[in-house]
């Protein structure tokens, strides 16, 4: 709002400046920015304020009354075992997906980047899952991991190993979802790491070679890894944010089951808000979710400042 007001005020001084020198009045800049400013306010800033306000009320969609509850929604959350279970499951998922996708992305990037032949082939192959429609591929994965007819269990059987009911076992459900997450994210991280690798100046490797560092793994630990430091941090945080937002696979494959073992934060919030229409407590969960994402983003933007784009 203050932007629009400042704009109107500025028109006057723009005219005054126009008398002295004919540079295009900055007024035009407001016209350029206006559509975005309107959308920013209507679809983002106001909703955030509203969600914040709702989190202190007992608002339910369709209900006539609304009353102020103060921090009741938050204290209720703090003692709500369902919420905590979703929170724990989400953290578990993040703890599996982030190391898995970051390490495999790094490994693939380093190996592929050193190749003389086939670099593009590998990049395309590993990137393919990133562009695929996750929901469709998730159903494929559910089939792959199927307890009786899934090829993964066929393989385990062929190797004489025990078979698993991945989607029926509360112990295995999060790892199974994490496999899908890692499968989709590894190629994306690989491309980010590749960009970081190409930014390492070649003469550093030459200097290392002159200094007698010539084994690939020595080179990796003395030059590549330290130089990839900022990229690695960036990839870790980006992956954490992506993993924190896990929703699609849960909504389609497990619906939080079995026995709530795959309840995640966003799925719980979704059910609360859009299935049970309890807006107040869903808003409180949203605020908790936003706080976590903002902390991660803050870390990320500090890195972005250093390397605006790769």
């Amino acid at each position: 709002m203050s932007i629009a007001l400042a704009g109107a005020e500025h028109q006057g001084s723009a005219k005054r400046r126009r008398r002295l020198g004919a540079e295009i009045a900055p007024g035009i800049a407001y016209w350029f920015a206006a559509p975005s400013i309107v959308l920013l306010i209507v679809t983002l800033l106001l909703p955030i304020i509203v969600v914040f306000a709702l989190s202190f009320t007992d608002y339910e969609l369709g209900a006539l009354g609304i009353s102020f509850l103060g921090l009741d929604n938050y204290t209720a959350l703090a003692s709500d075992p369902t919420f905590w279970r979703g929170f724990r499951n989400t953290l578990y998922y993040v703890a599996l997906v982030v190391p898995g996708s970051v390490l495999s992305g790094l490994l693939l990037a380093v190996l592929v980047n050193d190749l003389i032949r086939g670099r593009r082939f590998y990049q395309i192959a590993f990137f393919l899952p990133v562009t695929s429609t996750l929901i469709a591929m998730a159903t494929v994965w559910k089939y792959l991991l199927h307890g009786r007819i899934g090829p993964v269990n066929h393989l385990l059987a062929a190797l004489g190993l025990p078979q698993f009911e991945f989607f029926g076992d509360p112990e295995l459900i999060m790892p199974a979802l994490a496999v899908i997450g890692i499968w989709q994210l590894a190629g994306f991280n690989m491309v980010l790491f590749t960009a970081g690798l190409t930014a390492i100046p070649a003469d550093l490797y030459e200097a290392a070679a002159v200094d007698g560092i010539d084994r690939p793994w020595e080179r990796f630990f003395t030059v590549t890894l330290p130089m990839l430091g900022p990229t690695t941090m960036f990839v870790i945080i980006t992956s954490s944010i992506t993993a924190f937002k896990v929703f699609d696979t849960v909504a389609v494959l497990t619906r939080g089951g079995p026995q709530g073992a795959s309840d995640v934060l966003l799925y719980t919030t979704y059910l609360e808000g859009f299935q049970y229409l309890r807006m107040g407590s869903a808003a409180a969960m949203t605020i908790v979710f936003l706080a976590i994402i903002l902390v991660l983003s803050l870390l990320q933007s500090r890195l972005l400042d250093r390397k605006v784009h790769y």
């Binding site: 983002l44 709702l54 937002k245 859009f274 979710f289």
Partner: peptide, 9 residues
């Protein structure tokens, strides 16, 4: 997911 609730309303 953050502005989703008010937008829905």
């Amino acid at each position: 997911q953050v502005p989703a609730l008010p937008l829905y309303v």
